[in-house]
Design a protein around this nucleic acid. Structure first.
Lengths: 204, 204, 204, 204
DNA sequence: AATGAATGAGGTTTCATTCAT
DNA sequence: GATGAATGAAACCTCATTCAT
């Protein structure tokens, strides 16, 4: 039954920074946003990334590792987005407003917004000290903002984490619900929400 | 073979509400909290609930239906917890504080806290009008609070949804992180956080 | 959790020829015709027959027994249909024609034709001597016809089984395909087919 | 990390026709013949074919697809068997006899006879136009035979389908019953049956 | 390095059968 | 006799992972 057996064998070689890893991460992110956690199989990721299934295992230990690394990847991206266009000499409130809007805008982008659709929060994440350090480093500018605010007496004397939850978390939450269509937030409301977030953390 | 002698035998046995269904829901909730979305197999649910796998399908159409119903089940529970100990004649701020603490306390309970561990938000939920109505009804008292606040001029003129995200969402978020051990919130900080949440939605 | 427990208990008694068995057989036949072999579950049979699942097991040992008994039930019905309107004093050819048409007509009936849809042949059947005797008895008139034909010299000297396959089997097959819509057989063709079947078994 | 050095590595290995697919089809056919429709589970097929369960799904969409493809596979085989050893210059009757015997012999073979055990007819089959075309093409020679017979005036003026049911169907039916042991057909009877089948479709 | 066919454990779901009521 | 909730084995199918090429 094997009368005809073809073997085609083309062999070229390719090195350089393996953009494959990036493609795999991007593919994972996209599928996660599109189909959620359950619509994510390694086979699909491979297909979407344009690589073979086995190839994924050259860059990631296993599925968990892929997800962990995706988390870090996205977190890094998010951190850089959140802290962009900030300079230390801007007034405190303007810096706050910029950050708040960075968060808001991130949700409306074309290329990377997929994260925000709520799946991100539930990526399995490592809980080590190491992970904590990474996050601390990524969001250094956020902490700096809160520290300055407290030093200058404008902000309430609360842990940065708490200040963050009181002021930035609502921003992320509103953006998410706005994008997901739970309800619409018009421009005026958004401005008022920024103001309200500011009110939450400032002294009165 | 047609001699006549009739015996009809109708037998109805009825327990108030099949406690098996409740047991299945509780088991699902527990496993969801313990192992997350991926550690949830119907076999495990069955085992945890102390029923046979097939039995689940007497009460739930399929896995999705189980999750949907769990969502509603929990939501109902949450709503009743959040709005407990509220009476219309309490001052606005006291009512707000009660609600905020209800949310906070819910996380620290023994029996139902599992919900809060973050999995709840990501249960697959129906998006129908019907679902929306249910939620509206369950949280009527919350809306009433915000409406009164706006009418009396104490609150900012924003949609209830936005007010909720600005003031109660941080409460839930803090509680979640407190429970999950991301960081600890001491009593003083918690009181300050309540105050801050109030600041966020009140006029200044 | 059992605060409310109702027990309604009505007890009448019913004997007589249990028409339940008939209802179960009819239901099985119907479902078999409608959904084929794979769409046949005991639960469905119970529902269709208007009895409880457990009740089936009062009349039939198990599913196999149900199917076996259905086979015999249908076979008996078929035999009586096939041999109806026959009298010994009819000319041989008229008797043959009547039988052939009985087969044909059986397929077009309202109430019992469901059998013919091809599922019947594949009912699991017992292969015992006993079964063989039953079939022999049921189709005695058919055998009688062939015997007379051979005695009178009109028919070919072949075993009755073979004569049957040569002349009646095509009738059944045509009817089945006609009903199933594989192709249509008009009246003229049907008459010609009867004639052809006759030609097959008669001496030339 | 973008130094350039490429290696592309394409590797195609190709065996004439995945013999696994053939093995799976053969296994399915065998099990179907041995245990019937109900004794056919994908696990069993996998085991019989010597592949893993999941492997089946590389070649067949699902169980239905496997059965559909098996039907076509067998039909193709049957068609080639039925129409073998036929040449257009053989006399009509000799061609008919050859075909009839081809059908008969098919049942007595070692390697492919399993089909005949009656399960084949009840494989789920597609009912599309496409399917009809396939069958038409496969059995072109049969149609050709009937067409010639009608043109030459030897055969009755009936649709080919009807002629087929009158003459070849009994052949298949006899072979089946012979094989299944319902009754034995000796050589002389078989020859007489061929003659009778011929009588059924020829003019008198 | 890269491939993707193959694996087989484990997922969800169905269903013949039992048994307390 | 009759019920139908409960059972759990077994069905179909998916998918993370491996490995010969």
């Amino acid at each position: 039954m094997n009368e005809h057996s073809f073997i085609i064998f083309i062999y070229i070689y390719m090195t350089s920074m393996s953009d494959k890893k990036i493609r795999i991460l991007k593919a994972t992110e996209k599928l996660l946003a599109m189909y959620g956690f359950h619509g994510l199989s390694m086979q699909m990721v491979a297909k979407e990334a344009g690589v073979a299934a086995g190839t994924i295992y050259r860059y990631f230990e296993d599925k968990d590792d892929l997800l962990h690394q995706l988390y870090d990847h996205i977190l890094t991206h998010v951190a850089s987005q959140v802290t962009q266009n900030l300079s230390d000499d801007m007034p405190l409130k303007e810096r706050f407003r910029t950050m708040w809007l960075n968060i808001w805008n991130m949700a409306n982008q074309e290329d990377a917004p997929l994260i925000n659709r709520g799946q991100f929060e539930n990526l399995p994440r490592r809980n080590g000290q190491e992970q904590h350090q990474l996050e601390k480093k990524l969001f250094a500018k956020v902490n700096q903002l809160f520290d300055e605010g407290k030093t200058s007496g404008q902000f309430k004397q609360l842990d940065n984490e708490i200040l963050s939850v009181l002021s930035l978390e609502p921003g992320a939450c509103l953006a998410r619900k706005h994008i997901n269509g739970v309800f619409k937030v018009d421009d005026a409301s958004r401005e008022a929400a920024i103001e309200a977030s500011w009110d939450a953390i400032t002294q009165h």
